[in-house]
């Protein structure tokens, strides 16, 4: 088997006294799209944040392409090619779209925006608009576009389609497909039709544990995922 893009073993995370993640094992192969489903509070965001370095796990390991991620600051993790795209579409609203992208470039030393503009042509005309004035869909385009700078090996995307119009969701679905040609994607998502349309593998989470691993393909239907929501 080829070397995995992301491997998580025995990950335990606690907020103070209360444990939120229990012995998470997790594999993502290169160019794979892995989706994570589960109810609110199941620990999906916590999982992504722990891998990205924002939370300090109490034990466990996470490696990307054989490189250890645990114990590094979030910016180091990002520089190792593991990009986290947070939920709530947090763009820097006081900065213009161009400045938002410049920051992404500054962080990764990748000043080539061709791919961003190819995926999201709409951003081209919005470059000098303050990000605070963008619509939810445009913000999400900016977030994902910015994260593709530096050509990351792994992208951790948290609730990308929450509250977006169906046409934008369709577009994002196409973009995820394109992105998976160069990277492995971990997507936390509640939109089951989308999940079933793109995922090569689905992990279902409940109460801080992974309770099921569903392989992708024809057998993966919204009905099959439903019990875990």
């Amino acid at each position: 088997m080829a070397e995995q893009s992301l491997v998580v073993r025995g990950l335990n995370v606690a907020y103070g006294e209360s444990k939120v993640l229990f012995d998470i094992d997790f594999d993502v192969a290169p160019n794979q799209i892995v989706c994570c489903v589960g109810r609110n509070g199941a620990g999906k965001t916590t999982l992504l944040k722990s891998i990205a370095g924002f939370l300090k796990p109490s034990s466990g390991a996470a490696t990307a392409g054989g490189v250890n991620l645990i114990g590094h600051r979030p910016y180091d993790v990002a520089r190792m090619g593991v990009k986290y795209v947070p939920q709530d579409k947090k763009v820097f609203s006081d900065l213009t779209v161009r400045e938002n992208l410049e920051l992404g470039s500054y962080a990764t030393k990748d000043y080539n925006w061709d791919r961003v503009m190819e995926y999201f042509p709409k951003l081209k005309i919005l470059l000098d608009r303050k990000a605070g004035f963008l619509s939810g869909g445009e913000r999400q385009m900016l977030m994902i576009g910015r994260a593709t700078l530096g050509n990351p090996k792994v992208m951790l995307i948290d609730e990308p389609t929450e509250g977006l119009a169906p046409s934008i969701v369709t577009h994002l679905k196409y973009v995820f497909g394109e992105l998976s040609k160069s990277a492995a994607l971990v997507i936390v998502e509640q939109n089951l039709p989308l999940v079933c349309g793109i995922a090569h593998k689905v992990y279902a989470m409940r109460d801080g544990r992974i309770v099921a691993e569903l392989p992708g393909g024809a057998a993966l239907t919204p009905a099959a995922c439903e019990p875990y929501l």
């Binding site: 924002f54 910016y75 990009k83 820097f92 900065l95 400045e99 962080a107």
Partner: peptide, 25 residues
């Protein structure tokens, strides 16, 4: 300046700046 822009961005959300790969310390 790019450092200045990063500071402005950090005033909004420092965690997010760090997530981009910028050395916030």
């Amino acid at each position: 300046t790019i450092i200045g822009k990063a500071i402005r961005a950090g005033i909004e959300d420092v965690e997010h700046v760090e997530g981009l790969g910028i050395n916030v310390s």
